[in-house]
Amino acid sequence: MMISTDTAFIHADQVGLSFPGAPDVLAGVNFDIPKGQFVSIVGPSGCGKSSLLRVMSGLQTATAGQILLDGRSPGNARENNLRSAFVFQDPTLLPWRTVRSNVSLPFELRDRPPAEYRNHVRETIDLVGLTEHDADKRPRELSGGMRMRASLARALVTNPDLMLMDEPFAPLDDILRQQLNEEILRIWSDQKWTAVFITHNVSEAVFLSQRVLVMHPRPGRIAADLEIPFAYPRTSDLRATAEFAELIGQVSHELRRTVE
């Protein structure tokens, strides 16, 4: 499936990233992601996944080529109301604030009056499976899973067009990770943002996405682009099917080739 440049929501064209005195981190990264697609990126540790995500978010500028979000550079897009949200590997909450006030932060930084977003914040906290009672707790009083939910809520509360997620569930145990995978898909089906999801867990990548990009290290580039054809809504039953196992096998195989 080829997507032409002008319909692509995210367009990466020969993207390169290097730091002075170090080998290239990224070189010749090309891909197109249409609006609303759920894409996962897998790759061996250190291959540049986080760096690629940082370039997409505008936190870092590509040193070669370019990334366009909806036809504009990431920094420009962000200033022009393209709402992109970033979910970090760690929950990255402000420890002195309650969950509620952490989730309100994006609005506070935009100087919105609290009356305008109070209800929406409450709904979003509810959406990620936290209770009103949890909302008044500090991050330290929450389990790792609940903190991650709070972090997701802070990203979702802005009604993003683009969700950039950097191994958000990596530190969680398997069952919790599967639960959160199902929940994030439920929310995505509803809200239809474009998702770029980084993980080193192949099963998670296959379960979530319509498409998996496999990255090759040193320098980071796209080695394989696999389509995951399962229909949504996907439930946990999918994990038990032979087709699911087959695709995991395929992605793992591509992943193995990048390190051999």
Binding site: L59, F88, L94, P106, L109
Partner: peptide, 29 residues
């Protein structure tokens, strides 16, 4: 200050002043 938190503030187009008051000062307590 936790660099991820600084990134979070940058991604939300926080001003210098907001970053000082809402992030740096509380972190420095």
């Amino acid at each position: 200050v936790d660099p991820d938190l600084l990134d979070l503030f940058r991604l939300n187009n926080a001003t210098r002043w907001q970053t000082l008051l809402k992030l740096r000062l509380p972190s420095a307590v």
